[in-house]
């Protein structure tokens, strides 16, 4: 059955605001059962830490030392958000332990692979996780099952936050190398392309519509979500206590 989905596209914004918006939408999904897909970018270039990463672990990554930092509510490794497109998808879930939560990674990443094929870019899902003595700081240097790779470089990884009756999954699609993470080439660097953020977003929407059977309605945050965003940004994602909690 076709699912009506609110589609939000936001201009480049601060990391703490971006994370607060995702959290507010997740809480709405928990209360109302609504589904929201959001596309956004970050300004300035920002490091987001995985929820369980220590703040001091960023010291090991010198190129991003000048970037502001925000701790995500989701797991995984750190991301330098710069020349990339970020998506978030909030969906209701019957249980935070259900298998289908796990398949959300594969479903979204498969839609991305189909999207990239329309630009003549070949990407695949990682089938075997890479094992490291110490997990790399950067998400894009890690390899989990279901990550998206192109020429053996990771170009998309996603992470989730699961609460009572809903899930937030967000992920970054690396379009081009950032000066703040020069070791990570993006799709355009690897494939000698010049795909724009808008082109990627439009094509990805088409693929998501088909694979998820979604019908999109352009929307924005409700007034109650907007009120929550300010509070969540202040009390959590902008707060020193939250950022330095580990």
């Amino acid at each position: 059955m076709t699912q009506i989905v609110r589609l939000i596209t936001d201009p480049p914004s601060a990391g703490s605001w971006n994370m607060a918006v995702d959290q507010a939408i997740l809480e709405s999904a928990n209360e109302t059962g609504s589904v929201t897909l959001r596309f956004y970018q970050w300004t300035p270039a920002t490091v987001s830490l995985g929820y369980f990463q220590s703040l001091e672990s960023r010291d090991a990554h010198e190129p991003s030392a000048e970037c502001p930092i925000v701790r995500r509510a989701t797991g995984g490794g750190a991301i330098v958000h710069d020349r990339e497109l970020t998506y978030s998808l909030c969906v209701p879930s019957r249980s935070r332990w259900a298998d289908e939560n796990q398949t959300l990674y594969t479903k979204m990443h498969s839609a991305l692979i189909a999207c990239l094929s329309t630009f003549n870019v070949t990407a695949t899902l990682v089938e075997q996780p890479a094992e490291f003595a110490v997990e790399p700081f950067l998400c894009f240097e890690r390899r989990a099952v279901g990550d998206v790779v192109c020429q053996n470089y990771k170009i998309c990884g996603s992470a989730q936050r699961r609460i009572d009756k809903s899930i937030l999954q967000h992920g970054s699609i690396l379009l081009a190398k950032s000066e703040s993470a020069p070791e990570l080439p993006g799709i355009n660097d690897l494939e000698n392309k010049s795909i724009s953020i808008d082109e990627l977003q439009q094509q990805l929407l088409t693929q998501i519509r088909q694979s998820f059977d979604f019908e999109f309605e352009f929307g924005e945050l409700s007034s109650s979500e907007n009120a929550k965003v300010g509070e969540i940004q202040r009390n959590r994602f902008q707060s020193e206590a939250w950022t330095a909690k580990r």
Partner: peptide
Amino acid sequence: EAFGEVESVKAVSNLY
């Protein structure tokens, strides 16, 4: 209400 959290395959889940 949540009393703790766990991470499994990049997913952080509340414990209630």
